[in-house]
């Protein structure tokens, strides 16, 4: 496996996004286009937040975690718990952002912690047997979902967004929601942080080195296994983070949240190229935008948009848009 920094420099995949936006602009009025584009980018950022953990774990550990959706659901339930425990009726923007930040932190901690347990109990026991690894994560995902039904009930839980994060404003005739803008910012932040952590820190360097040549890293005195565990926990923590964002967006949480969105997450990860951080971001934005445009222009086709997009990309680039080894 080649390092993440050596990604494809081919400009073509990067042009897909602007091309799609231009195409959509030609088909509708500017104000509608702006609304849809911002909304689509926000959905894309949420998808990215939910998917990035999966692609990181796969890219760095070669483990495909089918229980990823369970961690997303966990984050959503943590958001419900935190926001119900700290009601801030009528509070200002700062209070609302504070509570959301707290929910994000709590979800990340819970997701990461549970991820460590999950790795210890399930993944490590079947290391080196890919088939059993898939099966074990599928089973673990079922257990996770069912335990959450036991703890939080099977009925949907309402999650009203804090007052200060509702509503929006109008620019150039286009309605822009506050929450969506916040999500876009958060997505960019996480993308930048992941990218920098992997490519510009000593820890990231060690992780990339372990992917490249584990024995050598261990011979130099570092515990590669611990690094991988850290990556797994980071991946599940990010999944829980994505769960918080989705829960606040949907305004309602059920134990099926993860199972519902895991398909989209898989499509994002496949389109982007398994293991690629930039690819994941690009694919998430692409999917979010395509869904919104198609939903507006031809609602009947919305059902098949994701699958059609995935098939088209796979036919064009069988390894995804920005595969890790730049092939």
């Amino acid at each position: 496996m080649t390092p993440i920094s050596r990604q494809s420099r081919d400009p073509l995949p990067y042009l897909v996004l602007p091309a799609l936006m231009a195409l959509a602009l030609a088909a509708m009025k500017f104000s509608a286009w702006l609304t849809l584009t911002v909304a689509g980018l926000a959905v894309g950022c949420m998808l990215f937040l939910a998917a990035i953990g999966l692609t990181l774990i796969f890219g760095l550990m070669d483990v495909l975690n089918f229980a990823h959706g369970g961690f997303v659901t966990l984050g959503a339930f943590i958001a419900v718990a935190v926001l119900t425990a700290l009601p801030i009726a009528g509070g200002g923007v700062a209070a609302a952002l504070g509570v959301v930040a707290l929910a994000l932190a709590a979800a990340a901690a819970a997701g990461g912690g549970l991820g460590l347990v999950f790795e210890r109990l399930l993944i490590r026991r079947v290391a080196g047997a890919p088939l059993r690894q898939i099966l074990v994560t599928v089973g673990g995902g079922i257990i996770l979902q069912q335990v959450m039904i036991v703890l939080f009930g099977a009925e949907p839980l309402a999650l009203p967004r804090p007052e200060a994060l509702r509503g929006g404003f109008i620019i150039a005739g286009a309605a822009l929601e506050r929450y969506r803008l916040m999500v876009c910012l958060l997505g960019l932040l996480v993308y930048a942080a992941t990218h920098l952590a992997l490519n510009r820190t000593r820890l990231g360097l060690l992780i990339r080195a372990s992917v490249e040549n584990r024995e050598m890293v261990e011979a130099l005195g570092f515990r590669a296994e611990r690094l991988f565990r850290l990556v797994f926990a980071a991946g599940t923590a990010l999944a829980a983070l994505g769960g918080v964002v989705w829960a606040l967006y949907a305004g309602m949480v059920t134990a099926d949240l993860g199972a519902d969105i895991i398909i989209l997450i898989f499509i994002v990860v496949i389109i982007g190229g398994l293991g690629s951080v930039s690819g994941c971001f690009l694919a998430a934005l692409l999917l979010g935008l395509a869904n919104n445009y198609v939903g507006f222009l031809a609602p009947k086709l919305a059902l098949g948009t994701d699958i059609a997009l995935m098939l088209a990309v796979l036919l064009w680039r069988p390894r995804g848009l920005l595969p890790m080894d730049g092939a």
Partner: peptide, 17 residues
């Protein structure tokens, strides 16, 4: 009985492991 899947999941993981 609605948590039937929980027990199936546990059995599944134990058998695979």
């Amino acid at each position: 009985p609605g948590r039937w899947l929980l027990w199936l999941g546990l059995i599944f993981v134990l058998v695979v492991t």
